[in-house]
């Protein structure tokens, strides 16, 4: 019977190389499995859901211009579909945080107005006073007949949170120290990705909405700030190790929208993420097909 190799063989250079090669191959295979395929211009093969119930949307806001564009992109946001919103802002970016609060207030106002027009919610008798046209009447009648579940108002401070993480790169920061600050941004990206803070501490979620808020985001949106690149990379790490089922449950889908100001060339953030995100959207026809997968559907802002 051959004796097992001595334990010291494990410390040899050739064993180390073999181990590294195996790990590298395994990691590459894993990356290939989780990264989106090149030809994703066709709609994603996402699990089709008829009645979206409770979801969490994570939005990365950046410096002034990026925040403006992101909130223009989100102008038709339906809080009944995206029931919890997490806004990620760079530390010290009070402007973006303020804009996010104003945006949520607008969404809330719009939803209240809608609820009032439908005659449910807090605006009861208003529908009587307004005397809508006959066509309007039939429309609302048809809506009532449909067996759709009642829309709950998913707006207000309970339906969103703002997470602050260190900036990836400060203005005028030398390139040499950027990897360090970027690493800290990457590490601080994990807590807001993993969950949003619970309404009541030390209490399990009571409703599906609270459960979704405490879970990984279903969808991550970014449009170019450096912080966004690191948040997407952090999400990739979660998918790589399938943390909390990030990969197996199909969570953390990523959409990158290139800035409207980019007409002929991709931004640095865009070039970093073109292979990584699930969908890469550009706003000028000339950029369509960049990286083999940039989608163009018209101006979106």
């Amino acid at each position: 019977m051959p004796s097992p190799p001595p334990l010291s063989a494990l410390y040899s250079l050739s064993f180390l190389l073999a181990l590294l090669t195996t790990l590298l191959v395994a990691a590459s295979l894993r990356l290939l499995a989780i990264l989106p395929t090149t030809h994703t211009s066709a709609p994603l093969a996402a699990a089709r859901r008829k009645h979206p119930h409770a979801t969490r949307l994570l939005i990365v806001l950046g410096s002034g211009g990026h925040t403006h564009e992101m909130l223009y992109l989100l102008r038709a946001l339906d809080p009944a579909k995206y029931t919890h919103r997490t806004y990620v802002v760079g530390a010290g970016d009070a402007f973006s945080a303020q804009r996010a609060v104003e945006f949520e207030r607008e969404v809330e106002g719009r939803e209240r107005e809608r609820a009032r027009a439908r005659g449910d919610g807090d605006g009861d008798g208003d529908i009587e006073k307004r005397k809508p046209k006959t066509e309007m009447e039939t429309e609302t009648q048809a809506q009532r007949d449909q067996p759709t579940p009642p829309r709950t108002l998913r707006t207000g401070p309970e339906a969103y949170n703002i997470a602050t993480i260190p900036r990836a790169r400060h203005i005028h920061q030398p390139l040499l120290t950027t990897p360090l600050t970027a690493l800290s941004t990457l590490l601080y990206s994990f807590p807001p990705l993993l969950s949003s803070p619970p309404l009541l501490p030390a209490q399990p979620p009571q409703t599906p909405y609270e459960a979704a808020a405490a879970d990984l985001p279903d969808l991550i949106l970014t449009n170019g700030p450096a912080t966004g690149v690191l948040v997407v990379l952090a999400a990739l790490v979660l998918k790589f190790f399938d943390v909390r089922g990030a990969q197996s449950r199909g969570m953390c889908k990523t959409v990158y929208v290139e800035s409207f100001a980019r007409v002929r060339t991709l931004s640095l953030s865009g070039r970093c993420l073109v292979w990584v995100v699930d969908r890469f959207v550009v706003q000028w026809e000339e950029l369509e097909g960049r990286g083999g997968r940039a989608e163009f559907w018209g101006v979106l802002v």
């Binding site: 699990a47 559907w297 018209g298 101006v299 979106l300």
Partner: peptide
Amino acid sequence: FPPITSGGHRETKSFADIMDETMGFL
């Protein structure tokens, strides 16, 4: 501006459509 996202010489989508599509919402 913003351009109306229907008609035109090619198919256009709004960003809300793109989000719903990615999520698989019908």
